[in-house]
Amino acid sequence: MRINPKYTQWGAVTILTSATIFTILILVFIIFFILEKGLPVLGLSFLTENPQEMGKAGGIFPTLIGTIILPVFALLIATPLGISTSVYLAEYTKETRITKVIRFGTDCLAGIPSIIFGLFGYIFFVITLGFGWSILSGGLTLAVMVLPTIIRTSEEAIRAVPNSYRKVSFSLGASRWQTVKKVVLPNALPGIVTGIMLSIGRSIGETAAVIFTAGSSLRIPSSVFDSTRTMAVHFYILAREGISSENAYGTAATLIIAVLFVNLLAYYTMHRFIAKRS
């Protein structure tokens, strides 16, 4: 029996549309569910007070510090490495065996699950190099983890800079490095910033890689050799050990707001960048 193509057309479009709407509803539900339960807990005192009884009462101030310090530390290391890798790939070489190897390594690194980064960071930074559970170990581990994101987004941004810009710079007698520094990088900056933002977002939400490298101390760190606890780790401990579901919701809401803010900022920067290019 043949079904009229008009009906299959109608049926298919209906199914595809509902699948898309369903996907969006899941996202909306997650965000609203967390915010609805968490926002009443969230307030200035929740953000600025120290936790009491392992987080059963009080606020999340030390985890806020950890959540800011760790990604910043990671990005301080990953950004220069990532950008110079992308400059090398996009400006200094043609497609050779070396670039293929670099690209393959970057892709593989991007696919490695965070628990493996956690294992690696633990055995390498915490144990072998003797950094202990610390901001140093956690930051270095996160740096390795976000490196592929920075490399990819920066390379795309650099390749999007029109060739005529480079030609003008060269014709004025500038060297390759002068061209990169004065012309290419400034023009690629918004795209590079997008990559940095996305990496910060990923670092903020990371748990598995952080808990085994930065530890989970609730004290405010005084040096990079101190352990720290991020909001994501704090939330995980609160939720998993059933310490306080109220404070878990509050922490989750803060976490979601931070991650959404950073990601929306990234999209906004990218959007401006694309609008300027076209």
Binding site: I34, G205, T207, F235, L255, V259, N263
Partner: peptide, 14 residues
């Protein structure tokens, strides 16, 4: 939809 990827996995678990 890409924002779905940004939501931390602990939140999904929760």
């Amino acid at each position: 939809i890409e924002l779905l990827a940004a939501i931390p996995s602990v939140v999904y678990g929760f």
